[in-house]
Design a protein around this nucleic acid. Structure first.
Lengths: 329, 329
DNA sequence: ACAATATAGGTAACCGCTCTCACCATGGTA
DNA sequence: TACCATGGTGAGAGCGGTTACCTATATTGT
């Protein structure tokens, strides 16, 4: 049984002002009515404590004013930072975000994405776990989608901020090579879990080019669980790491400390993504930096434009930058 | 203009099965209809690709199945961890969370809380910025609210997981005192920003009891900005810190490193909240631990029960624990 | 065999708002 | 004087479900 809603409805406001509900609706949104009527309605609404019901509004108009944000995996600190940044930026645009977490699971991503569409979000920002899913093509029909990270395969996205991961990988591997590391442990995250894992493929290709001896392992993104994997690699004799997320690199720090190994003299660590924390560690984590503020701004600008009905349909390719801080010896 | 929704409606399913819309509605929710009919409806729904529209459902029933999560300030890493944990735990309960961020602003908290209510969330978890706001009393009428952190003043909450901050403060200050620190810089967070800041008051009281010389400063919760404040205190000669959030403590680490000061031999740092990262630093951050998993479990259990209509109305007082890791010399 | 009770499903009134469309004053134009 | 834009306004039909209430039919008790 619906709980007793004591709130005023638009009909009561109509009655109070002697207007029709329709007129009130228009007045409150400042359309098609005279200034005088608007003022009268405002007054009455304030007195009755009337506020339009967003659910009813959504049902009738098909719009909500909300923007969906579907994160790939909030376990990753960088993605957390991204989500928080986007939330704040949207707030500055008088929009508000509905944040959901796919938890790295393509099936869940599928479910939640449709759920957001059904919630009538005006637009969607997504950091796809599986950018190749047919889902996206379906979703992009009738809902502006802005993707961050990878481009959506075969879908007409309303905007894309893609990371040039090939360049990022090259940057990282070349840096490690220059510093004299030939044998590397590469800890990839579950985030790059597209079917064929293009980033991993590129890692292998670059390894060939640079004459590197690589062991590739999948690690969970949470620092705590990454510590275990990192420990195993250290015990196996690895001393140089390329981690596909800064939060994984934190695990290498912890595992090294546990074993009394010093970074960077004994162990070298390279991160990826540049989380705000990375500069605070000792030594600072050398990492590949994606300009998180720029990404946030670009994505938000695109999504707001799209939600307002004028999509830019632009693709911005984000170039990586090597941020050297001293964790590679 | 509402975009063309090509989706099947309940009426189409009714037509296809030769039943009334009502019967279909019941069947899909497994009430009042025969097994056979249910199966028939399922079949037809699957064929038509029918899925109930959550908005329409919410409008008619006043329920959504969603649980609102209103965070005090997602800038704080600990609160991020809490939010992620709650999100996952709710997922395990087949519930899904709508996450919003008050950004430490009471006014925003006010707006968003009402917005969540208007969104018809079945229940609300809140980490109040201002637990004394009259808002809560209003909200608790007709919506189960579970609060984490502080108790809601004058409101009938559906559950409370309160932190015994007095005990936590005492624990921290006594530890620092035992280790021989008499002059302390206390960096409080904006999180405890209730009008009278009870935690701060207690700090001063305990300082008196323990004969401590305290300087109390407000610091932003983001590590990067906390670094600046910490630096100023270091430059002013402070060498012992009590930080009211681990993320602030990270700032002390960074500021110390910048100045070539070594923790714990030259600088002592005490945190508060035990973020997952804190164990990964070198040295590990000594902090006051709140058993985040326990909090998540308790809050989620309460909120799910309340959303299902059987509120427990319990108050759990969370006891702090000193987690010594070596950052206090 | 007949009243009493379940049980399945139909009817129709909502939920609170938006939006199309028809209507009605105006005042300017032919 | 008749005619047409013009722009404010009201009526009413949805939006896509849910639910209280009611009617048949099947089941049960005596």
């Amino acid at each position: 049984m619906p709980q007793p809603r004591k709130r005023a409805t638009i009909r009561e406001v109509a009655k109070a002002t002697g207007l029709s509900p329709a007129a009130v609706s228009y007045a409150l949104r400042g359309m098609q009515v005279s200034e005088e009527t608007i003022e009268r309605v405002r007054q009455a609404a304030a007195e009755l404590g009337y506020e339009a019901d967003p659910i009813a509004r959504a049902l009738a108009s098909g719009r909500t004013g909300m923007i969906g944000l579907l994160c790939g995996s909030l376990e990753d600190l960088w993605q957390q930072a991204l989500a928080v940044g986007i939330g704040r930026a949207l707030k500055d645009n008088d929009r508000y975000a509905l944040i959901l977490d796919a938890a790295g699971d393509p099936a869940r991503e599928h479910t939640l994405a449709r759920q957001l569409r059904d919630q009538r979000v005006d637009a969607l920002i997504v950091q796809p776990v599986d950018p190749a899913a047919p889902l996206w093509a379906e979703l992009c029909e009738g809902l502006p989608v802005v993707s961050i990270g990878d481009a959506l395969a075969g879908a007409r996205a309303a905007g894309e901020v893609v990371f040039d991961n090939r360049a990022g990988v090259t940057l990282a591997l070349e840096h490690l090579r220059e510093r004299g590391h030939r044998r590397l442990a590469v800890l990839t995250s579950t985030r790059a879990s597209t079917p064929d894992r293009p980033a991993d493929v590129h890692v292998m290709a670059e390894a060939g080019r640079l004459d590197l001896d690589i062991e590739l392992v999948t690690a969970p993104q949470s620092p705590a669980s990454a510590t275990r994997v990192a420990g195993e690699m250290l015990d196996a004799g690895h001393r140089a790491f390329f981690c596909f997320a800064d939060s994984i690199a934190y695990g290498v720090y912890a595992a090294s400390a546990e074993r009394g190994l010093v970074i960077p003299s004994e162990v070298s660590v390279m991160g990826y993504d540049d989380h705000p924390m990375s500069g605070l560690l000792t030594p600072g984590l050398t990492t590949v930096d994606w300009d998180i503020d720029g990404i946030v701004r670009a994505a938000v600008r695109m999504v707001v434009a799209a939600a307002d009905g004028n999509p830019r349909r632009r693709r911005i390719v984000q170039a990586p930058q090597l941020h050297e801080r001293g964790s590679v010896g």
